[in-house]
């Protein structure tokens, strides 16, 4: 490959339309309509929207689990219909389940073998992934006894096992408690620092805001808005100023200053900023 040839996007979705045929006498259902998106290598892209808006169908199309009715999807330039396209992708489905009779380590070994990993390398890598996702102690326990959060982490370990360049996460924090959710968020941020591309869906906007470089907002099977997170959420004509240990006198002075020299600027609100419930829970849980 020539050094100067442009790198293909990690994920390319072009004019994707997916219509599910229904049984006799029922109308067909259009899950996704003319959707296009591109995820560049190294980016964290969030696909957000309410339940049933077509996020999961889009992901399945990217992973080749459903065949597009129109349009095409590709991973690192390879069409999703090719098995090769899945060599560099790790997938964590929503609420993953694994073979209940296997333990954590055996589950990873199973998926590793499916990726044709060599036995010695696989064993080390599986241990490493269990450590990374904090499941070392549960490695010898049957998966049937895992909590929802543990299953989610095992799912992540499984997705990362073969060192993919792209990770696709479907609702990674659904049903997980805030501590687990925070852990997953931290993992996503660490992927980013390692240069791994992440495509993540969620309906929890706050979390997405923390990790994503860019987001796309879907509704009714269509892309409604798309762009950089800071651009999308910035309120351009407001400025926030947070002070600690400010005396009432100082606050009154600031107010007066704004009124006298503000040139049209005005104080919209003031008061004590509230901590988020999520932050509070984490603080209490850590003590």
């Amino acid at each position: 490959m020539a050094a100067d040839s442009p790198q293909p996007p990690a994920v390319a979705v072009e004019n994707l339309t997916k219509v599910f045929k229904a049984g006799l006498g029922k109308a067909a259902f259009t899950a996704v309509r003319d959707l296009s998106l591109t995820v560049q290598p190294g980016e964290v892209y969030g696909l957000i929207g309410p339940n049933g808006c077509g996020k999961s169908t889009t992901m399945k199309a990217i992973l080749g689990l459903v065949i597009p009715t129109h349009g095409r999807t590709a991973i690192f330039g390879r069409s999703s219909t090719l098995v090769e396209s899945r060599r560099e992708v790790g997938f964590l489905p929503e609420n993953p389940y694994f073979y209940k009779h296997l333990n954590g380590l055996e589950t990873l070994l199973f998926y590793g073998r499916l990726c044709n990993m060599k036995a010695a390398e696989l064993k080390d890598r599986a241990r490493e992934m269990l450590a990374l996702t904090g499941l070392e102690d549960a490695a010898d326990r049957r998966v049937s006894g895992y909590s929802k959060g543990m299953l989610q982490r095992l799912g992540l370990a499984q997705a990362l096992l073969h060192q993919p360049r792209l990770i696709v996460l479907d609702e990674p924090t659904a049903g997980v408690d805030p501590a687990g959710s925070r852990k997953i968020r931290d993992l996503i941020l660490s992927f980013k620092s390692q240069g791994i591309t992440v495509l993540v869906t969620s309906h929890l906007l706050e979390q997405m805001q923390e990790v994503c470089d860019r987001v796309g907002i879907m509704a009714h099977g269509q892309m409604v808005r798309q762009g950089r997170v800071d651009e999308l959420i910035a309120v351009e004509n407001e400025t926030e100023l947070v002070l600690a240990d400010a005396s009432p006198e100082l606050l009154a002075e600031i107010r007066a200053l704004v009124e006298s020299k503000g040139q049209g600027a005005k104080v919209v609100r003031s008061g004590h900023p509230r901590t988020t419930l999520e932050k509070l829970f984490l603080e209490v849980a850590d003590q």
Binding site: L63, V83, R87, F91, Y97, Q158, H162, V168
Partner: peptide, 14 residues
Amino acid sequence: EDRTLYTILAKPVP
């Protein structure tokens, strides 16, 4: 039902 099919077929398994 268990969605294990998704994780298996999301690997490079024809």
